[in-house]
């Protein structure tokens, strides 16, 4: 009762991300609307052409950004003006996730050359070595078994995965 409301750091962060979303939305809408003007049109066929619906979407997205602005404004009223969040944040997981993304990209790049079985066994092994640390034997067995059996299963289902360097 009568206690002054102070936003928590979590709420401040939400308000910050909302601002970023707001800006991004407007940028996306602008780029999309600009790209819409680049669609070549021939004035035949349906009266609306290929541009009308996208144009509508672009303007609706701007409206949605306005909606978000109203929501942010309302939140501000309840939470009082808050400075941008400061202080160190734990970002270690972002580096690890970036690593996973790069590693997956590499896997996709060599998938056809090395073949599914070899590439996925290596891919899995590395991921497990990191996220399921210290259990070497289980990891090796799972990685190899999964790669071979999934390849065989999908071959049977007539889904052909790249065979690459393996003869079968």
């Amino acid at each position: 009762m009568g206690v002054c409301y102070h936003p928590s750091p979590e709420e401040k962060r939400t308000m910050m991300t909302d601002r970023v979303i707001f800006v991004c939305t407007i940028v996306v809408a602008a780029v999309y609307l600009y790209a819409t003007t680049l669609i070549p049109t021939l004035e035949i066929g349906d009266p609306l052409g290929p541009k009308a619906f996208p144009r509508l979407l672009g303007f609706c997205l701007l409206l949605a950004a306005a909606m978000l602005f109203v929501e942010m404004w309302k939140d501000r009223q309840t939470a009082a003006a808050a400075p941008a969040p400061s202080g160190p944040r734990d970002v270690r997981h972002l580096w690890i996730l970036a690593g996973v993304v790069v590693w997956s990209g590499l896997f996709y790049a060599v998938l056809e050359r090395l073949g599914y079985v070899v590439a996925s066994a290596i891919y899995l092994l590395a991921l497990m070595a990191w996220f399921n640390r210290g259990k070497w034997r289980a990891n090796v067995v799972t990685a190899v078994l999964f790669s071979v059996s999934s390849y065989a299963l999908f071959a049977k289902l007539e889904v052909n995965l790249p065979k690459g360097i393996l003869p079968f």
Binding site: Y116, F131, N132, N139, F154
Partner: peptide, 22 residues
């Protein structure tokens, strides 16, 4: 173990997407 499961889901996702058009 979660680490194992996540790795396998990544591999299954790869198969799922690749299988559409190769």
């Amino acid at each position: 173990p979660g680490g194992m499961l996540m790795a396998l889901i990544m591999a299954i996702s790869t198969i799922g997407i690749y299988a559409i058009n190769g």
